[in-house]
Design a protein around this nucleic acid. Structure first.
Lengths: 206, 206
DNA sequence: GTCTATATAGGGATAGAC
DNA sequence: GTCTATCCCTATATAGAC
């Protein structure tokens, strides 16, 4: 990320994403960020005003794209009447997988997102809910349509559990080590398959 | 926690647990901790040597008890041949629920544990694996016995997903708000019931 | 738009009196 | 075992030259 063919601003965002994912928001200093981005210390305040605003921009850069991919995949699946729970789950989960595998820091971002949840940051939660809450609503009604026997509250609980398992799995919290001879991509691909199968069964529970 | 009928050491541990859960390890300063504990700043280094060692002691204080409760519940369940998956899951999950509900900071500790996972701290992971890995091993074989059709690797994946969902649920990451008229205890109790039902179905998936 | 230099604050840790 | 005072480092942010 800290190569020269990106703008100063982009290099800062990339380095910040990496370092915040690794050390947390409080744990990574602007000095570390600017050193990794190969820019001057003062550049952060020039381009972003403050550390807090830099954090927001790190999120905004990725989430618009991630959620529009999710919505697109959902519309595709929802149009097909034979689409099953697994297809809906995939519409939500695969875009996160793709992001975690892309070159240029997407993997760090997915970990950062998990961290953001763990940090229980109210301002950030509100930001996420305000800007991307409609995505969850849309998925909720798609699931409700295919699970007519589940009452509303029960479905809420179960989707919340799915979100938790996904967050955890994508952020690589788990203890399952990647075997030698398996690429990172294959490993994550396996994780997603297991997650979808597990979540579908959980949602179908009586 | 910061009342006077606890020793200085205990007051520091309690305040540190609260503040680390709230602001993270890097985000909470020893000055905040000692102020909340109503002790002198120098007391941390006197009693614990360093901030890093204080962090370890915060974990040790709770985990011995939590995991011995889990092991005890597991032995109880394993003895009954009619014990089902739900019973095994409860043996793992209910002690965490109890801890999260106890007076004196257990709730903060459960959130802190989730944070520790999210932070991806290698030293802490090794500490947890070294000291409490046997608990997971023991649960794994108990589940394996009751799920003979699942191969070893498949079971590993699924238990990892369960651990993720549990971590997320107990740490209160989720978006489900507690309704007015429902106590915190009732709310968490509901969460555990949903979690067990969901996880059992996921584990039984074909 | 990028640099150096610096203002200002807060951090962890410790020395030494009590 | 607890206090004050302080060392020394690092942090964010900004002013002002280029």
């Amino acid at each position: 990320m800290n190569t020269q063919h990106f703008s100063t601003k982009e290099r800062i965002l990339g380095a910040a994403e990496q370092l915040f994912a690794q050390h947390g928001f409080a744990g990574a200093s602007l000095r570390q960020v600017t050193a990794a981005a190969n820019v001057n210390l003062a550049a952060v305040n020039y381009h972003f005003g403050s550390k807090e605003n830099l954090i927001n921009e790190v999120f905004r850069r990725r989430l618009d794209e991630l959620n529009s991919h999710r919505m697109h995949a959902l519309e595709q699946a929802a149009q097909r009447p034979e689409a099953d729970l697994e297809d809906l789950l995939a519409a939500f989960i695969r875009p996160a997988l793709d992001l975690s595998l892309d070159r240029g820091g997407g993997g760090a971002f997915v970990r950062l997102l998990a961290r953001a949840y763990a940090e229980h940051n109210d301002a950030l939660r509100k930001f996420l809910s305000d800007n991307y809450g409609y995505v969850l609503k849309r998925f909720h009604s798609a699931f409700a349509q295919r699970l007519p026997n589940l009452d509303k509250e029960e479905l809420y609980w179960r989707l919340d559990i799915v979100a938790g398992a996904l967050t955890y799995a994508m952020a690589d919290f788990g203890v399952i080590k990647r075997k030698t001879g398996v690429t990172e991509q294959q490993h994550r691909e396996r994780a997603v398959e297991h997650l979808i199968r597990f979540a579908a069964a959980g949602l179908r529970a009586p």
